[in-house]
């Protein structure tokens, strides 16, 4: 077979792999001061999929999130959204407006605002300065906010300042804010860190219900929680994918055991 033909076939294969993905990460590497945070990381997420990403500390989970959401630029590699939008060329706000929502590891909400205002600010719609200046609260928006308040179980905290919420409630509020953005893809970083068991269970339920009509990528340490999610799992190690599959499948993988339990 000629070389050109080979390249052609390879391109076609890559195109096929990209097609029908909501998120396509291919060969992404990034280096900080000589430290390789991501090493040729490749994986993809299908529309409507719920995906858990696990890995020990320093595996590159948060850096991966940073790259997808435009906070960090990769040294090499492709990051495509809806199989054709190149995310490496856009900034955070543009990526957010495309329909990718991100929840931080540490719950980050607008502490001086009420729960209602937090959701209002996240509400999809005009993001322009003057749109914001002359914005009037419409009934449709209000209805959506009320619905979300119900989804995230914070109806009675509606007019409370976000600073006064408990840790778990802040996590939910943040998820609620992501829902208000109406993203196609949700990236959720350690949503149950510091939560009680019952809160954890409720959060898992919440995420599963969200995942019904959108793609969700969850980064998590907590194995029980990942089991609760009941989805495909990707194991990261030293900046690249170590194993991928159902949780009980990857748990049997000797390399995963080695990474998690030490050698």
């Amino acid at each position: 077979m000629s070389e050109a033909a080979e390249i052609k076939i390879e391109q076609a294969e890559r195109k096929e792999a990209r097609a029908n993905t909501i998120l396509y990460v291919d060969g992404v590497s990034v280096t900080f001061d000589g430290f390789r945070a991501l090493n040729s990381l490749s994986f993809y997420v299908e529309p409507g999929e719920l995906r858990a990403i696990i890995g020990p500390n320093g595996a590159g989970k948060t850096t991966m999130m940073d790259i997808i959401t435009g906070k960090t630029r990769p040294d090499t590699g492709d990051v495509l959204f809806r199989s054709d939008v190149d995310l490496t060329k856009l900034d955070e706000a543009e990526i957010a407006n495309l329909g990718i929502g991100r929840k931080f590891q540490k719950p980050t909400v607008f502490e001086s605002h009420t729960v209602f205002d937090n959701l209002l600010l996240a509400c999809s719609g005009g993001r322009g300065v003057f749109q914001a200046l002359f914005h009037r609260l419409g009934n449709a928006e209000k209805l959506r906010i009320e619905q979300t308040l119900e989804t995230i179980m914070l109806v009675d905290k509606r007019d409370e300042t976000a600073a006064n919420l408990s840790h778990g409630q802040k996590q939910w509020l943040e998820i609620g804010m992501l829902l208000m953005q109406e993203p196609e893809l949700l990236l959720v970083d350690e949503p149950v860190a510091g939560m009680t068991d019952s809160e954890t269970e409720q959060t898992a339920k919440l995420l599963r219900s969200i995942a019904i009509d959108r793609s969700v990528v969850v980064v998590e340490h907590d194995m029980e929680f990942v089991r609760d999610l009941d989805c495909k799992v990707t194991v990261l190690h030293e900046g690249s994918v170590l194993a991928e599959g159902r949780l009980d499948h990857v748990q049997k993988d000797p390399r995963v055991i080695e990474v998690y339990l030490g050698r």
Partner: peptide, 28 residues
């Protein structure tokens, strides 16, 4: 008191959250 003002306060409290919510913080 406008929505813009709320965005400003949000920027004061959590700038990167505002960015990831889709606002161009620099314009505000």
């Amino acid at each position: 008191n406008s929505r813009l003002g709320k965005v400003l306060i949000a920027i004061r409290d959590a700038e990167s959250r505002v960015r990831f919510t889709g606002y161009r913080v620099e314009y505000y």
